[in-house]
């Protein structure tokens, strides 16, 4: 240290303090900005296709909308997950996006093409269809209300914070497994009639008012981790995502 009796004039000291504080705020702000950018979901939102038709359920009329998803054990094109470290091509995942936007007060028909094999649920409860119109789903043309726990491959379980500011929305749909894993791509509409041997699951539910919800899979597909809920299950955007009702 070179300064022995160095002192500053009061003015200089105040200026230094102000610069110091601004610098500190800037550093914290920069960290915040970095984290905020890193948190941004790199996936494109998947918007439901609105239909001009309406449908009447329990005496009320709703506009219709449809959305299609796929689940592949080993997809051929990667969803962009931003950082390369977390961009695992060989992890099972929903697609083409896990952030789904649905219109409010609408009869939403969701189609999920499934191409993964499975073993057993941690909790057989998730083998039941809950929260859909009529309490059923359609698997390859057949209406069912549940799937045995050892026949399930993944689930689509939609829930959210119970809060006064949005309507509750709870849907649980188990997906029937296939006998062997099929590689594929998030192009469900072109899959029909191709070599891929999957199932097609269709179900409908009615959205409430605007709100933010989350969904996740309840099938333990994080292989090799405690109760199968590590790895892909603990990482955002593979077997979990958001549903915005707008």
């Amino acid at each position: 240290m070179s300064g022995t009796n160095t002192t500053m004039t009061a003015g200089k000291r105040t200026a230094s303090a102000i610069v110091g504080v601004l610098l500190g705020v800037a550093v914290v702000g920069a960290v915040g900005f970095t984290l905020h950018s890193a948190s941004a979901d790199p996936q494109k939102k998947l918007y439901a296709t609105k239909d001009s038709a309406t449908i009447s359920v329990d005496g009320k009329s709703y506009p219709k909308a449809a959305v299609t998803l796929g689940v592949y054990p080993d997809r051929q094109t990667a969803i962009d997950h931003g950082s390369t470290a977390n961009n695992k091509k060989d992890w099972v995942q929903y697609g083409p996006s896990t952030h789904i936007v649905l219109p409010a007060h609408t009869y939403v028909t969701m189609t999920i093409h499934v191409y993964d094999s499975g073993e057993k649920l941690n909790n057989p409860y998730f083998g039941r269809v809950v929260g859909t119109v009529g309490g059923t789903m359609n698997v390859d043309g057949q209406d069912v209300t549940s799937i045995p726990a050892d026949q399930v491959q993944h689930t689509f379980t939609l829930h959210g914070l119970p809060t006064t500011s949005q309507d509750p929305l709870y849907v649980n749909v188990p997906l029937l497994r296939v006998s062997t894993n099929e590689k594929g791509d998030f192009l469900p509409t072109t899959d029909a009639g191709t070599k891929l041997q999957g199932h097609t699951v269709t179900f409908s539910f009615i959205t409430g008012g605007k709100g933010e919800y989350v969904w996740n899979c309840e099938y333990p597909c994080g292989d090799g981790t405690y109760q199968g809920f590590g790895a892909v299950m603990g990482s955002y955007g593979y077997m979990s995502g958001k549903v915005s009702v707008a």
Binding site: Y125, F126, T157, Y170
Partner: peptide
């Protein structure tokens, strides 16, 4: 009461009902 990552569910054995 069963806690699952990240959903609760409830089973009423006498009534034979399972719900969220």
């Amino acid at each position: 009461v069963t806690g699952n990552q990240w959903v609760w569910n409830f089973h009423y054995p006498a009534q034979d009902v399972t719900t969220d």
